[in-house]
C-alpha cells in the first residue's frame, strides 16, 4: 500500500490497485515528456536466431558514424545494443525461431533512443544479482545489463520485462568514466 500527498496537501492512503494506476500514469507522463522530434528512424523485426540482428546493428552504427558521433559513444551504444539484442533473442525468446524481436531506433542531433521488445515472458531486472560483488564476481553471467546501464544515459524495462528502452545523450562525457589506470 502507498501513502501519497494529494495536490491539496492531504495525506492519502492508496489501495494496491490505485497505486498501480498511479505508477502507470506517472510512467506514461514521463514517456510523453521524453517525446522527441526525430530526424531519423529505423525499425526491424528480427528472427530469434543468434547473429540475425547484425543488419539492424550495422544500420544504426553506420548512421551514427555518418552523423559524426564520437567513437567512444559509438563503442558504448554498440555494446549496449549488442547485449540488449542477444538478451532478447537468447533469454527472452529462448532462441525460438517462431518468435521475433522488434527493434526500433530513433535519432536526432542530441540523442539516440533504442527500443527492443521480445515475445518472451519477461523477467524482473531488479532480481538480477549484482555481478560485481565478491560472491558473484566469478559467475560467468549477468554482465550484459550492467554494461547497458553504464554506457547508456537511461535504460528502462517495461513492467513485464520483455521490452527495454535505452537512450544515450550526445552531450554525455566522452572519456572513460570510472576506468582506473593500469598499474
Amino acid at each position: 500500500m502507498w501513502v501519497v500527498r494529494s495536490r491539496r496537501g492531504a495525506i492519502v492512503e492508496l489501495s494496491l490497485r490505485q497505486s498501480m494506476t498511479l505508477i502507470s500514469d506517472r510512467m506514461h507522463r514521463a514517456e510523453r515528456m521524453s517525446q522527441q522530434q526525430w530526424t531519423w528512424s529505423t525499425e526491424d523485426v528480427i528472427r530469434s536466431r543468434l547473429g540475425a540482428h547484425e543488419s539492424f546493428l550495422q544500420q544504426v552504427l553506420d548512421k551514427l558514424t555518418a552523423e559524426d558521433w564520437h567513437p567512444y559513444h559509438i563503442f558504448g551504444i554498440r555494446l549496449a545494443l549488442e547485449e540488449a539484442l542477444v538478451n532478447a533473442v537468447r533469454h527472452g525468446n529462448e532462441l525460438d525461431e517462431q518468435k521475433h524481436v522488434r527493434a526500433v531506433c530513433h535519432l536526432n542531433e542530441q540523442r539516440i533512443r533504442i527500443e527492443i521488445a521480445d515475445q518472451g515472458s519477461g523477467f524482473d531486472p531488479t532480481g538480477v544479482p549484482d555481478p560485481t560483488t565478491e560472491e558473484n564476481l566469478e559467475k560467468p553471467c549477468g554482465r550484459g545489463i550492467l554494461l547497458m546501464r553504464n554506457y547508456m544515459t537511461r535504460v528502462d524495462y517495461n513492467q513485464s520485462g520483455n521490452r527495454v528502452v535505452m537512450e544515450k545523450l550526445r552531450s554525455d562525457p566522452v572519456t572513460p568514466s570510472d576506468a582506473e589506470q593500469i598499474c
Binding site: 567512444y72 563503442f75 555494446l79 555481478p131 560485481t132 564476481l137 566469478e138 554482465r143 550492467l146 554494461l147 553504464n150 572513460p176 568514466s177 570510472d178 576506468a179 582506473e180 593500469i182 598499474c183
Partner: peptide, 23 residues
C-alpha cells in the same frame, strides 16, 4: 595490451580485480 576502451569494460564489471592485467 588491453586498449583503454576495452579496459573500461573490465573496470565496469570489476574484472580488473579478478585478472592480473599488465600494460
Amino acid at each position: 595490451n588491453i586498449r583503454p576502451e576495452i579496459y573500461e569494460v573490465f573496470a565496469i564489471t570489476k574484472l580488473n580485480k579478478l585478472f592480473d592485467i599488465v600494460e
